[in-house]
């Protein structure tokens, strides 16, 4: 059943909150190296889907497979360790930590030193700490925040906080990254930079699943779009097809048309 280059398989996922079905039998795949967008009006179930994918919520029914293995029931940190990480719709940087330290937390699942070796500052812990610092600095450079490394993350301008969240997620060396409205609150210039960055990361082999309301960005970078409305997929396909789909226009783009 598993196609060779399918990274993430979502199989008939349903999530109910009491009587309300936030997701109804949603199925789609994400293939290696693609940028897939998930769009839909507010309340369509996009963030719920992200919560299910990353183990914050468990699906009522259905299955989620990452690299061919079911991840339903795993803890969020285990899923992160398996190579899928997310960012948040509302920025969730760690308070009181510098930009660099925020990114260093992202390295958590690729490092191992625990209470004993860290508390006693054993050579292995020191070596690892040095590696973490250097790697995190490289990631900061990658997103253009190297000069802000020593500043408290939450004190940065909004656009840079978004970039920092992205950097923190990238530090976990993910195969696939789930971006929850990464362009929200960014100005046009910053959105352009973000688009460039995402395309660059994709070229390096990163797979991206993005939820975004900025249609310009979605149309520009995504290979395929999945449209959700009331927890169901109402359309899917290449950006230009989706754009012209009457159901989509009615449910979502109709507001603008």
């Amino acid at each position: 059943m598993m196609v060779a280059d399918t990274l993430l398989q979502i199989r008939e996922v349903t999530k109910r909150f009491g009587g309300l079905a936030a997701l109804k039998d949603v199925s789609f795949d994400v293939t290696v190296g693609e940028i897939k967008a998930m769009i839909g009006p507010n309340g369509a179930g996009k963030t719920t889907m992200f919560d299910v994918l990353t183990g914050i919520l468990h699906p009522t029914a259905g299955d989620v497979m990452l690299k061919g293995e079911s991840i339903v029931g795993l803890r969020p940190d285990q899923i992160t360790a398996m190579g899928m990480i997310r960012t948040f719709q509302t920025i969730q940087l760690f308070e009181g930590m510098t930009a660099l330290e925020n990114v260093m937390v992202g390295c958590h699942c690729r490092t191992a030193c625990g209470f004993a070796s860290s508390g006693l500052r054993q050579p292995a812990a020191r070596r690892e700490e040095k590696d973490i610092r250097e790697k995190s600095m490289d990631v900061l450079k990658d997103v253009g925040l190297a000069t802000r490394a020593g500043e408290i993350g939450t004190n940065l301008p909004y656009g840079q906080q978004r970039m920092l969240e992205l950097a923190r997620a990238l530090a976990s060396e993910p195969d696939i990254i789930l971006l929850d409205e990464p362009a929200a609150g960014l100005n046009q210039y910053e959105t352009g930079e973000l688009a460039g960055l995402l395309v660059r990361f994709r070229e390096r082999g990163l797979t991206i699943l993005i939820v975004e309301h900025d249609m310009g960005l979605v149309m520009q970078i995504s290979d395929e779009i999945v449209v959700l409305d009331y927890g169901e997929i109402i359309a899917r396909g290449a950006p230009q097809d989706v754009q012209n789909d009457p159901r989509v226009i009615e449910a979502y783009l109709g507001i603008e048309a």
């Binding site: 990353t54 183990g55 914050i56 803890r75 969020p76 940190d77 992160t80 360790a81 990480i85 997310r86 948040f88 969730q92 940087l93 760690f94 308070e95 009181g96 930590m97 330290e101 260093m104 937390v105 992202g106 390295c107 958590h108 699942c109 490092t111 030193c113 625990g114 209470f115 860290s118 508390g119 500052r121 812990a125 690892e128 700490e129 973490i132 923190r168 997620a169 976990s172």
Partner: peptide, 24 residues
């Protein structure tokens, strides 16, 4: 000042975010 300390501070700030970033 270690990996563990950062994990603790992260979970203080936001448990959901710390979890998602791979902190158990």
């Amino acid at each position: 000042r270690s990996r563990v300390g950062r994990g603790l501070r992260a979970l203080h700030s936001s448990e959901v975010a710390a979890d998602a970033m791979g902190v158990n």
